[in-house]
Amino acid sequence: DVAEQLTPDGPREESLQLVSELKDPWCSCPVDVGTVWWAAAGHRELRVVTASESAVSLWQPLAPDCWGKVYTWHLTELPVIQIVPLPDTCNLVCVALGELEIGEIRLLLYSETDSFKHSLVKTGNIKAVVGLKDQRLVSSSRTMQEQQVEMVLLSETGGSKDRQTLMPPEETVTAFAEVEGMREALVGTTAGNSVVVWNLKTGQLLRKMHIGYSYPASICHRAYSDSGLLFVVLSHPHAKESESCGSPAFRVVAFNPRSGRSTGVMFSCLPPGRAGRRGDVWDTAGAAVLTSGAVAVWDLLRGHCTAVLPPGPAGHWALARWAAGGAGLLAGHRDGTVHLYRY
């Protein structure tokens, strides 16, 4: 696998097929892109969401290769930092806003009676947030004295139906990931480089397992429970390049939650000579923007880099996000152009 990646004719963009392009001439500084399921007039379709610091736009497919902007929410008090994907939720867009770190989380929604509006879900010094299936949102926030980890059950009208406090670990939680197939389990990574596991129903902190010192500041993206083991997809934004392994982009690590022991299962490294990455994972595929301005895609189960999108005529790629429901990869340029690729 490594030999294949080292060949000059290594992965190209063949496994990514350009489906369509959308361009917002008013968006000069995109901060995020994503997709949302939208139900209207009796059917459900996937729509694209683009975010700049002060506006979030909803895009509707008009024809197979053509998108039109449906609506723009203007958010003027705090800059938008990221779109928070809400799996299997319809007609709700969740965004995180703040200066250097997330200060508030808002829902952007449309209702028959109120038209388009937005509502505040959470405020504080928010360190990490994740959207889960069944309209649930989990976040960690910190005061000088303590850390709060909370799950909010969102209502269809953009409010909060219920709140559940989860037991916080001593270390700050830096990322969350849902566990595929286990509705009540949630994993997180901490500033002390551990993986923690919660029971979402009871709020119990079940286990803290150290990742190891070789890969500091690991970020969890997704987890799968199988055969009594917990397989966690981690990215390593700050790992140093090593002669034996190259630069790790993603690793799949198997944890035994009973014993707390772990072992590396699969290793996906950056294409040779590349550096930097900001990653996203969907199912078993990983994607990241490299500092060279290219986008790289990996099959995480095989450890293969399967595609590289070089910087195009419009310049460096700035964003790479997987669309919901296996609809492909969204890649965004700094000039506001977004390409949708089938993968």
Partner: peptide, 23 residues
């Protein structure tokens, strides 16, 4: 990975840890 590397594996780890962890 073998059981000797990772220690005893339980298919019901989530239920067992939930029963053992402080409420």
């Amino acid at each position: 990975c073998s059981e000797s590397d990772l220690g005893p594996i339980s298919l019901n780890w989530f239920e067992e840890l939930s029963a053992e962890a402080p409420p």
